[in-house]
């Protein structure tokens, strides 16, 4: 089907947190890949493991098991200095809260240049400075802002600084973890437009993590829906919205309020009850491709029922 090269491949990734005797399976056997130049959306409600997935990929957490492949190299587990450098400079992250993720005691210039300095991307100070200014202009700020501190900026501007910081190392992959949910409504559209522009101009690959489905649909080409640490459905954004198959996806879609009063006041909601699957030892869920590019987590019995209903 798709013969583009994946830039990121995640295979059977697990991340378990241990609390005394109990195990919290935050990410449980997650597999997906992201092609070069595309935007891949990861959605789900809070606690479903979407952020943990992002953080495990970028090595903020060590994976419990499974593999992460980036640019053809395996990057989970122990890496030597050179391999680490290849990962840290080519993969960058934008966090949800632009207030908490900027050091209040560093100037904007120091913040943006830090990653480039550590990775020794530019040969001279002048080149570094010129690139910081270039980045600031790219994200809609000016060179004058370089000497200021984060508290002098509004939330939207701070998120722009975070984006500039992520882009200065010329990353191949940007992981954006809820980049707009901490911003005001009128500012969200500004940041979305900026990310859209950068994606087109720089050909960025983005792993977009969010809970707002309308934003994810607008922004992503393919989407994976997560629930309780697992991916339950994965498809291109149009397929997913036109033909949701997994009951959790249906319930999530029906829960988004639509700004259309005549429709919204009459819409039906579906509640998701995980016990309807009745999974047992013979009937374990696995990812089944029900149509080209549309994967759903279901057991063999459910798949048979789905095919039966289709006829």
């Amino acid at each position: 089907m798709d013969n583009r090269t994946p830039i990121l491949e995640v295979k059977h990734l697990c991340k378990h947190f241990y609390q005394g005797k109990s195990v919290m399976k935050a990410v449980d056997d997650v597999s997906f890949h992201v092609y070069k130049g595309e935007t891949f959306g990861l959605v789900g409600e809070s606690g479903c493991g979407k952020t943990t997935t992002g953080r495990t990929i970028i090595r903020l957490y060590g994976a419990t098991s499974g593999e992460v492949w980036f640019n053809g190299n395996r990057i989970d587990g122990k890496l030597n200095k050179e391999e680490t450098k290849a990962v840290t400079s080519k993969m960058q992250m934008i966090f949800q809260d632009p207030v908490a993720s900027l050091n209040p005691r560093m100037t904007v210039e120091e913040i943006i240049s830090e990653g480039a300095k550590i990775n020794k991307i530019f040969a001279t100070e002048e080149e570094l400075k010129a690139n910081v200014h270039k980045m600031l202009e790219l994200v809609g700020l000016t060179a004058e802002h370089a000497t200021r501190y984060p508290h002098e900026f509004s939330g939207g501007q701070r998120q722009r600084i975070c984006i500039a910081r992520a882009l200065i190392t010329k990353p191949d992959l940007v992981i954006a973890d809820e980049p707009i949910s901490a911003l005001d409504v009128s500012i969200q559209a500004q940041v979305l437009n900026l990310m859209n522009k950068l994606r087109k101009e720089l050909g960025l690959t983005i792993l977009f993590i969010a809970h707002d489905l309308s934003v994810v649909k607008y922004f992503s080409e393919r989407i994976a829906v997560m629930n309780r640490g697992r991916i339950v459905e994965m498809a291109s954004s149009d397929l997913l919205y036109d033909n949701p198959v997994h009951p959790y996806t249906k319930s999530l879609l029906s829960a988004i309020p639509i700004p259309n009063p005549l429709l919204e006041k009459k819409r039906e909601r579906f509640d998701y009850d995980p016990s309807i699957h009745q999974y047992d030892e013979q009937n374990q869920p696995k990812m089944i491709e029900i149509e080209p590019g549309h994967l759903v987590s279901m057991s063999d019995r459910e798949y048979a029922a789905y095919l039966g209903a289709k006829k």
Binding site: S186, Q188, K217, Y218, S220, E221, I256
Partner: peptide
């Protein structure tokens, strides 16, 4: 200013 489910990807938002 906000995308809805009908907004096409790549459309500029107001």
């Amino acid at each position: 200013s906000m995308p809805n489910l009908d907004t096409k990807g790549g459309d500029e938002l107001m």
